[in-house]
Computed example of a mutant assay.
Amino acid sequence: MKKLILAAIVCVLSVTYSQAQLLPSFKLGVKGALNFSSLHSEGKLFNSDTKTGYQLGVWGRVGIAGFHVQPEAYFASKRVGITENSEDGEGTFKSLDVPILLGTRIGLGPLGFRIQAGPVFSFAQDGEIKINNVTRWEDYKKSSTGIVGGLGVDVSSFTVDLRYEHGLTNIGQNATPDQKIRMWSIGVGYAFL
């Protein structure tokens, strides 16, 4: 009799879980993050060219059957150190970034772990590049693409993300070495829907 009751409980939980996975889910929220970016890392994750910036924006998540799409839009300030022709400088790229992440969530109820990856499209709004006190903003492209991936944790309505973004576009107009944004970010968010 105990085995029959236990089997019935497992069966009911399995059906409930599978139906919950097949129902579409929707979330909408806000997020903020610190980012650590560089234009070239010379094979290192962090070096003297890595500078700290920030991100502020909104995100949404639509999921079904354990998978989800998470589009985001945020304002980003990416600060980088620049070395060009043995001259040191610093730059700030202020952009509207639009990642479209595909992922999966593992967990039940209010606690879940996410794995996500996808493209990111960046549109420069403003910025400043100074090398030896000479402004060189016109030497850089105003849009770029990259790929972003990372891990996240959901605890009820709160989210925490750790991501790496690797630029695919050489953002220098005439730069001989490729100048691509490489960035780590750690962010927190809140889902109000």
Score class of each variant (00 low, 15 high):
Val134Pro: 03
Gly146Pro: 10
Val134Trp: 01
Ser144Glu: 13
Val148Gln: 15
Ile106Leu: 14
Leu111Lys: 00
Val120Arg: 11
Ala117Pro: 13
Gly167Ala: 00
Asn132Thr: 05
Ile147Arg: 03
Arg182Tyr: 13
Glu138Asn: 14
Lys180His: 06
Val160Cys: 12
Val153Leu: 15
Glu128Ser: 15
Ile129Thr: 12
Gly149Ser: 09
Arg105His: 14
Gln173Tyr: 00
Gly146Asn: 07
Lys130Ile: 03
Thr104Glu: 11
Gly107Asn: 08
His166Asp: 09
Gly150Tyr: 01
Asn132Tyr: 01
Ser122Val: 10
Glu138Phe: 06
Thr169Ser: 10
Gly118Lys: 11
Lys180Cys: 04
Asp126Ile: 07
Arg182Gly: 15
Phe121Thr: 10
Leu111Ile: 09
Asp161Val: 09
Val148His: 01
Ala175Val: 03
Ile171Glu: 02
Asp178Phe: 03
Val155Glu: 00
Thr176Trp: 01
Glu138Ala: 13
Gly118Trp: 08
Asn170Lys: 05
Ala124Leu: 08
Lys141Asp: 07
Val148Asp: 03
Leu168Ser: 02
Gly112His: 01
Gly127Cys: 07
Thr145Pro: 04
Glu128Phe: 00
Arg114Asn: 13
Ser122His: 09
Asn133His: 10
Phe113His: 09
Thr145Gly: 12
Arg182Ile: 14
Gly152Arg: 04
Phe121Asn: 08
Ile129Asp: 10
Lys180Glu: 07
Gln173Cys: 01
Phe113Lys: 11
Val160Ser: 05
Val134Thr: 13
Thr169Val: 03
Gly103Met: 14
Pro110Cys: 02
Tyr140Met: 08
Lys141Arg: 13
Ser156Cys: 02
Gly127His: 09
Leu151Phe: 13
Tyr140Ala: 08
Leu151Asn: 05
Asn132Ala: 08
Asp126Lys: 07
Tyr140Gly: 05
Gly109Thr: 03
Leu108Ser: 11
